[in-house]
């Protein structure tokens, strides 16, 4: 992995202007100094050379190659059509948790905003679904126009500003995507903490993957959730329901961490088995790093699934 440039702390970033600006800052931060060849940034990507045969479009003839080897080669491109990207933001109450840094929801939102920014820039159609509050259905249909970015980010801003409500898992939103995309393959990026007691989300992701969609998951957790750094008698209250418990965190830390480890392992193995691109991050990690990891991972997926 290339050495990362100076990143902005997510907390600092969250204080930075409007969401479009933030998205651009993240993208720029992520891409600054990167080798351009590895990430072409075009939706019509070069795949391989093929010897010219009559019938091939002349505009695809690689003249530079002809000059070198004195033979006609035709450039072939992976995907020539516009890519549809669905960004799914888990807006449930649990995403509003913050152990001191920025809330998971904001981190997830910023990550997705950066992706949206990148996608729109590449003329991909980018749509947004936010889950969490079952009463409100937040859907921004995929569009590829540059003005669409503004609409999309403003909706995302609203969701983030609400700060996480409801206890609906992203599974419903994912199923909705399955309906919306029909047979058109799409890139679906879910940013969530995957706190779903019934594992519906994992099942829905596997389903989408089974429908040949390209699925990525950005698993966002707060460092307090992974490290459980509490001590002293503490009253823990649920963000999604009325549950609460008074406990000495030191006494249960080991068991909690074991359970958290088991949960992460389960997410990773389940999604890997389903072929879902899984990325785990915590909110104290620079967004650029997270974005870059996401992009690098996608670039390694191979031409068939490379989108952004």
């Amino acid at each position: 992995m290339p050495s990362l440039p100076q990143r902005m702390d997510p907390a600092q970033l969250s204080r930075l202007g409007t969401l479009p600006i933030k998205a651009r800052v993240i993208v720029q931060g992520a891409l600054t100094g990167m080798h351009r060849a590895s990430l072409h940034g075009s939706s019509v990507e070069f795949a391989e050379h093929k010897e010219y045969t009559p019938g091939d479009e002349l505009r695809h003839v690689d003249w530079k190659a002809y000059a070198k080897v004195d033979r006609y080669y035709v450039k072939q491109y992976e995907q020539e059509s516009q890519l549809t990207i669905y960004l799914v933001l888990d807006g449930s109450a649990s995403m509003g948790f913050s152990g001191g840094g920025i809330p998971k929801l904001e981190y997830a939102g910023l990550s997705l905003a950066a992706l949206a920014y990148l996608g729109i820039q590449q003329q991909d159609k980018v749509g947004l679904l936010a889950s969490g509050d079952p009463a409100v259905e937040t859907i921004v249909p995929p569009r590829g126009r540059s003005t669409h970015l503004h609409d999309l980010l403003s909706v995302m801003d609203t969701v983030m500003a609400k700060g996480g409500t409801g206890d609906e898992s992203p599974a419903a939103a994912l199923r909705r995507i399955a309906e919306l995309t029909r047979r058109r393959r799409a890139l679906i990026v879910l940013a969530s903490d995957l706190f779903d007691p019934e594992d519906e989300t994992l099942a829905a992701l596997a389903l989408l993957r089974a429908q040949k969609h390209d699925v990525s998951v950005l698993h966002v957790l707060d460092p307090h959730e992974t490290g459980f750094p509490y001590d002293g008698l503490t009253q823990f209250e649920s963000l999604e329901n009325q549950h609460r418990m008074l406990v000495n965190p030191v006494a249960i830390k080991r068991e909690y961490l074991d359970r958290m480890d088991a949960f992460l392992t389960r997410c990773r193995t389940t999604l890997a088995a389903a072929g879902v691109d899984y990325h785990f991050t915590t909110t104290d990690r620079p967004l650029e790093a997270t974005l870059l990891e996401l992009l690098v991972a996608r670039s390694r997926l191979g031409p068939a699934r490379r989108a952004v």
């Binding site: 109450a93 649990s94 995403m95 509003g96 948790f97 998971k104 903490d193 706190f195 007691p197 707060d222 959730e225 509490y230 002293g232 008698l233 503490t234 009253q235 823990f236 209250e237 649920s238 963000l239 999604e240 549950h243 609460r244 418990m245 008074l246 406990v247 006494a251 249960i252 068991e255 909690y256 359970r259 958290m260 949960f263």
Partner: peptide, 24 residues
């Protein structure tokens, strides 16, 4: 001591609750 307990809104309470069932 009960009253003075810190109140923490916590997302992963399910994990805690599962733990608590055994240790509560």
């Amino acid at each position: 001591g009960r009253r003075r307990a810190k109140v923490v809104k916590f997302a992963a309470l399910d994990f805690l609750l599962a733990t608590k069932r055994r240790t509560a």
